[in-house]
Design a protein around this nucleic acid. Structure first.
Length: 589
RNA sequence: GGGCCUGUAGCCUAGACUGGAUAGGGCGACAGCCUCCUAAGCUGUAGAUCGCGGGUUCGAAUCCCGCCAGGUCCGCCA
């Protein structure tokens, strides 16, 4: 599965190598690699600003070796490059050699490639590598809230992008069924009368049960005896006592069902739930402890064991990483180590999506994994919290906006918009369907389009702005394309690249041709927001084409037929890219 | 006190890891575009000491050092 631009790039690279060796016989491909610090020559091909060509080769790095100005080097190189199948012309601008790809060739082969591959266009060849992406992993003590809403959405976008990049992907939710949070919930459900527990207006099991958690938590803080009882639950499950584990399981199962339902509402499906207790029950945590105890970094303090992390660059007061309590029970991080060892055995690549509050713990786990000679370490994507204008959210203090509320609000506001714009044309059920696609799409897009490490202060007005760089802009471009196609009876797609000469047409096709490069880029750098940016650019170029190039009035000429084909392939690419972010592509809005 | 992350126009954001072509977008503001495929669109104008101060370099938003502000962590919690 290769794409037109792959071929073009390959040809440019070999032309470049050829030119360089002609110019300076001593400079072999290996020595450029050295100059570039081990980089392949592929990586130095950049995308120039608009209208300056399709690929650019900067010559700065050759300047000190050749003792010539980069500008002159660029000129020398350009002179040695002849037009070929893919290279239409070469220009220099300052220190850059700019390559212009033969646009006729690119137009024809891109359109052909999209029509052939359809919903698989952009996807990269199968890599035969398994990747486990762990995300969400929320405490099952209550509904998901927006503070951590980034986690499932970023995680799921990665799942989709990695699938497109040719990996076998499995998403996992690490289920904390042994911690204090679920113990509190368990105690609450077994000891409190539902009459004394505040009811939620949401008829979902996670919402219905969170009151028990909150009430129990309050009592625990006041009453030492209750705290002890809860502590007992924790202790028993950590000792692997089946009866207690079952009791806890019964308590959180309904909450988890509710969480799962919420995830489903935003198009997210988890492949596997992995309970922490599994690693206690199958004794793999015990093995971790025994091995860690044998390392030279292990020390004992009052019967508890820790690793001294000072030699690993962990500074300050955090150098003691306790992995075994004096009562012989394990800690969350210890069990996490066992989990990661297990994952490493079942995959070629591990990705975790975690809140930035887990940075230290994650580092500690990583060091332990290295000490245990674990072959595959996880790549961890940290995200900053979503906060409210007044401060941080907390389930404990009930100062929180739940994900479900956010979803409802998104859909409701989207509905108001649809009604305002199309209320007199569309049926109620149609508007509802559109509102759902727009509302949920907005939620996902707004989270994905921002770099995960930036703090987000959540404001309704901004989250639900439906104009400009927002999801309706993209969905609208898709709907426009569908609208044109719905007015064409002929299913046959004809295309003559010679007819499409308008600047907007050429730019749109070039944008479509780049899609596979963006999938490559987004997956290899673990950055879903790259796809969001691509979508915006693509929709924008489609809208410009829409403005400049009438389709239906030309439908009986070759130009018109080629334009219809272009509309269709643009529609396919928009759809595929939206799919990567888990956003629906409405045919009408 | 220490570690990590963030700081780009009134607001939001791309670019930073891999230093280079006039720092891209969007919202809001202002001025235009529907006898023509859905105006959730398009075009234009104004708006940036790239947090501050040093340094490295032919060249710094990008690398280094110091400072300031915000987030986050520093439990035998999870």
């Amino acid at each position: 599965m290769t794409y037109p631009l792959d071929e073009a790039r390959k040809e440019i690279l070999s032309a470049l190598e050829n030119a360089l060796s002609q110019l300076h016989i001593g400079l072999t491909p290996r020595s450029y690699k050295k100059l570039l610090g081990g980089e392949e020559l592929t990586k130095v091909l950049e995308s120039p600003p608009e209208n300056m060509g399709d690929f650019a080769f900067p010559c700065f790095f050759l300047s000190p070796v050749l003792k010539k100005s980069p500008k002159d080097i660029a000129k020398d190189i350009a002179k040695k490059i002849e037009p070929s199948k893919w290279i239409e012309k070469v220009e220099t601008k300052g220190a850059y050699v700019n390559f212009f790809i033969d646009s006729k060739n690119l137009k024809t082969s891109t359109v052909k490639s999209i029509l052939e591959k359809q919903e698989k266009y952009g996807y990269l060849p199968k890599k035969n590598k398994k990747v486990i992406i762990e995300h969400t992993s929320a405490n099952p003590n209550g509904p998901l809230h927006v503070g951590r809403a980034r986690n499932p959405i970023i995680g799921d976008a990665l799942v989709r992008i990695f699938k497109a990049a040719g990996y076998d992907v499995e998403s996992q939710f690490y289920l904390d069924d042994m911690g204090k949070q679920v113990a509190i919930l368990t105690w609450g459900l077994n000891n409190l009368d539902s009459k004394n527990v505040p009811k939620s207006e949401y008829d979902k099991p996670d919402h219905q049960n969170v009151g028990f958690y909150q009430a129990a938590n309050e009592l625990m803080e006041k009453d030492g005896k209750i705290a002890e009882e809860i502590g007992e639950i924790v202790k028993r499950s950590e000792h692997g006592e089946s009866k207690t584990i079952e009791l806890v399981h019964k308590a959180y199962a309904l909450v988890l069902e509710g969480i799962n339902e919420s995830l489903g509402r935003v198009n997210i499906q988890i492949d596997k739930y992995i309970p922490e207790s599994m690693f206690v029950r199958n004794k793999s945590v015990e093995q971790v402890i025994n091995k860690l105890k044998k390392t030279k970094y292990c020390h004992e303090e009052d019967g508890a064991f820790y690793l001294d992390l000072d030699p690993f660059g962990i500074k300050g007061r955090n150098t003691k990483f306790f992995f075994l309590r004096k009562d012989g029970t394990t800690l969350y991080a210890t069990r996490d180590i066992a989990y990661h060892q297990w994952k490493a055995k079942h995959a070629d690549l591990l990705i975790n999506v975690l809140g930035e509050d887990h940075k230290l713990e994650s580092k500690q786990v990583e060091i332990a994994l290295k000490l245990l000679d674990t072959k595959i370490l996880p790549w961890v994507l940290f995200y900053a919290f979503v906060s409210l204008p007044g401060g941080k959210m907390s389930t404990r203090r009930a100062r929180v906006v739940y994900l479900d509320e956010l979803i409802d609000e998104c859909i409701e506001r989207a509905y108001m918009e649809v009604e305002k714009r199309r209320g007199n044309e569309l049926s109620e059920s149609k508007m509802k369907r559109i509102a759902e696609m727009v509302g949920i799409g907005s939620l996902r897009y707004n989270i994905i389009k921002v770099q995960p490490e930036k703090d987000i202060v959540f404001k309704w007005e901004e989250a639900l702005n439906f104009e400009g760089n927002a999801v309706p802009f993209i969905q609208y471009a898709h709907a426009r394309a569908c609208s044109i196609l719905s007015k064409i009876k002929d299913e046959k797609r004809e295309f003559d690249s010679n007819t499409l000469t308008h600047d907007s047409e050429v730019k749109l096709i070039k944008q479509l041709a780049r899609f596979p490069l963006f999938i490559e880029d987004a997956s290899s750098s673990y950055k879903p927001h790259i796809i969001a940016n691509y979508l915006y650019e693509t929709a924008s170029k489609f809208n410009q084409f829409y403005r400049d190039c009438p389709v239906l009035s030309e439908k009986n000429t070759m130009l018109g037929k080629s334009r219809i084909t272009l509309v269709d392939v643009a529609r396919i690419v928009l759809d595929n890219a939206l799919q990567l972010l888990g956003i629906s592509a409405p045919e009408e809005m």
